[in-house]
Amino acid sequence: MKYIYDLHKTMLAENLILVYEGEFTQEITKSVLAMAERNMDSMGEESGIKRKVFNVMVECLQNIVKHSEDPDLKAEKRHTAIFMIGKHKDEYIITSGNSIKAENIEGLSTKLDKINSLDKEGLKTLYKDIIKNTDLSEKGGAGLGFVDMARKSGQKLEYDFQDINDKLSFFSLKTTISRIN
């Protein structure tokens, strides 16, 4: 039973106010959002910060919902994901981790590196360019999620890939929202 105490200690050490591991659906997304909102309300969080956290959470959660529908991931029983929010003195840290196909690593890295290379104005231009010129994907994504997360955060999106096997990789993403204006 030691894992319970270990997990508890990890959560305290990382200041995690919410952790969810499992399947991701729109219903789960709504529940997680409601929990995080209640938590921030009860702590009297400033409305502007609350809105940014909510915003980044939605994009992050809906990204996972869309990608977990991949039949190849389901076949490998790798369609579950983890989502966490850490609350620190000066910032919120929103992290997620989910399996992706190894063949998608390059495209994802290229996209995130491009976003991270841009400043505020550059991100605005990219956002307007994508919204004007791209249609919704089959999965219903606008291709704007990461751009929006970077804009709301105002900081770089940190990411990492860990090999699961030769076909799959675990994609971790970390977005920071400053609590200092």
Partner: peptide
Amino acid sequence: EYFNTASSKLIL
């Protein structure tokens, strides 16, 4: 009050 990025495409 809030809209996600997929909604922003539809708003356009």
